[in-house]
Simulated scan of single mutants.
Amino acid sequence: MNELLASVFTGLIIDENDQAYYVQKNGMTFRLLKSEGEHQLGEAVEGFGYQNQSQDNCFTTIIPKSRPGHFAFAEVKDVRRDLGVFVDIGLPDKDIAVSLDELPTMRELWPKKGDHLMVQLTVDSKDRIWASLAEEKIFRALSKKGTPELKNKDISGTVFRLKLMGTYILTDDFYIGFIHPSERFNEPRLGETVNGRVIGIRPDGVLNLSLKPRAHEAIGDDAKMLLAYLERTAEHSMPYTDKSDPEAIKQLFGISKGQFKRAIGHLLKARLIEQKDGHTYLLKTNHDESLSKSEK
């Protein structure tokens, strides 16, 4: 096994061409792109050794945070059902595979593109570099204990463990959160970013979380109907507001003026819509974010 792969070492620049320098260490030669900076022949440089997609020995002075014995979050870039998922650890021309053997048995709980996994690197006997998922003890070591002041606070984090008893996340503020199945609508997938609120603090400092909206935040059926109507219109707008004629509202939507006003009020408070010049407009970005949060 090439012990220089996936490791940080200092090598000597022995040659160059128009695109790259060539760095040597222990009789092995690695290619360093000149786009990373200028160097001189005979100069000693520190960097990270790996093999790119073409199995060429490469060297980068931009050292990844994820390395053997060093864990960091990496973004999922691709999903291969026959192999696993590929994550970006910062290498210029290579994403690293997380084996399907480390992923959930249920494929619908696999990470998707854009999710994040906490990984370190390993090298097998065939000199292949793999990303390996962090065990729970790593998250415990990284986390801090929750305090009562966090009760009812909104919180977000990344799912790192799926169990029958519930879901564990590492929050953006480095607390461990636990989501019981009764406090979610659907089971989050591994690596997914979720948004919730703190409903309790366990004696060990783990936060009990809920992904369900507060009662006053839940978007009702009437509000969902109005959102669906706005989604279908060409300009995501309608010539109706909370000041519109009750009969016109009843004829189009089949609900009373009072129901319409309550639904509009919910959507305004959630910043999903805006009203101006006698029209109601869908705020597209906020709709995508807030509705997905409400319906999880």
Results as ranks from 00 to 15, higher is better:
1 M>C: 05
5 L>G: 02
19 Q>Y: 13
25 K>F: 02
31 R>M: 13
32 L>F: 06
33 L>D: 07
34 K>C: 04
41 L>A: 06
41 L>T: 02
42 G>F: 10
44 A>H: 14
50 Y>S: 04
50 Y>G: 06
51 Q>N: 09
54 S>C: 00
57 N>Y: 15
62 I>K: 13
65 K>F: 09
67 R>K: 12
76 V>C: 09
79 V>Q: 11
84 G>R: 08
93 D>Y: 04
95 D>A: 04
100 L>W: 03
100 L>P: 00
103 L>P: 11
107 R>M: 14
109 L>G: 06
111 P>V: 06
112 K>R: 14
118 M>D: 07
118 M>H: 12
118 M>S: 13
122 T>N: 12
127 D>L: 01
133 L>T: 03
138 I>E: 11
138 I>D: 01
147 T>Y: 00
148 P>T: 02
149 E>Q: 11
151 K>E: 09
154 D>C: 03
160 F>T: 06
165 M>N: 08
170 L>Y: 02
174 F>A: 02
184 R>N: 06
186 N>R: 14
193 T>Y: 02
197 R>H: 12
198 V>C: 01
212 K>G: 02
219 I>T: 11
232 R>K: 15
232 R>I: 08
233 T>R: 07
233 T>V: 06
237 S>H: 03
239 P>E: 05
240 Y>R: 01
251 Q>M: 09
252 L>Y: 01
258 G>P: 00
266 H>M: 14
269 K>A: 12
273 I>M: 10
275 Q>L: 07
278 G>W: 09
280 T>N: 09
288 D>C: 07
291 L>E: 09
294 S>Q: 14
